[in-house]
Amino acid sequence: MFSQAMLELIGIGILETLYMTILSSVLAYILGLPLGILLVITDKDGIAPMVTINRIIGFIVNIFRSIPFVILLVALLPFTRMVVGTTLGPNALVVPLVIGSAPYIARLVESSLKEVDHGVIEAAQSMGASPSQIVFKVLIPEAMPSLIMGGAIAVITILSYSAMGGFVGAGGLGTLAINYGYYRYQVNIMLITIAILVLIVQGFQELGGRLMRRFDKRL
């Protein structure tokens, strides 16, 4: 059905997509996780209330979350060129992927951490735990199952964003689908890339679910 060359292209597309998705996810968490933690602890009912800081972070996060990803992608092109030296290829797409998803991750982390029972935090405070001890020994470990599930959602979202990178020649399955399926009307290529994307999404979701069950001690 496909030529050897086409299969190779698809193979490279898969690798590039996974590369972009995983690298962006890691970098976006490095940015988004601390932001999410800050949103929780600086809340007026948090363990280190700082209302002004909380408002500022919340505001920035909301701005970035309200920009559609394709627009952010284009708007960031000069910045991307400055950081990576080019606007083409997987590495270039990592920049907008990280900036576009970190605020989303911050909100995901925030909602996971807020699920932790306030009584448990109070118990830790009664034992003389400092705010940082509460973050690292109570909030994160207690919210771990939920954080893992949020992680799967974040990775899947980044994957779908990465496909949009096809329009700016970022490489990966998205570029493949657009170049062959959209511009050259090769519907079968489009379908196969969609099928592969579905499988990858399914894979991440399944992995997230398994890890969550493995970590959750609440039975």
């Binding site: 009584g119 448990v120 118990a123």
Partner: peptide, 23 residues
């Protein structure tokens, strides 16, 4: 110092407030 002093006051609660992810 307050954190230190709290270590000499134990507290228990109606809802137990145990860490659910720890044995």
């Amino acid at each position: 110092e307050l954190l230190k002093i709290r270590q000499s006051m134990g507290m228990i609660f109606q809802q137990f407030n145990l860490l659910m992810q720890r044995n």
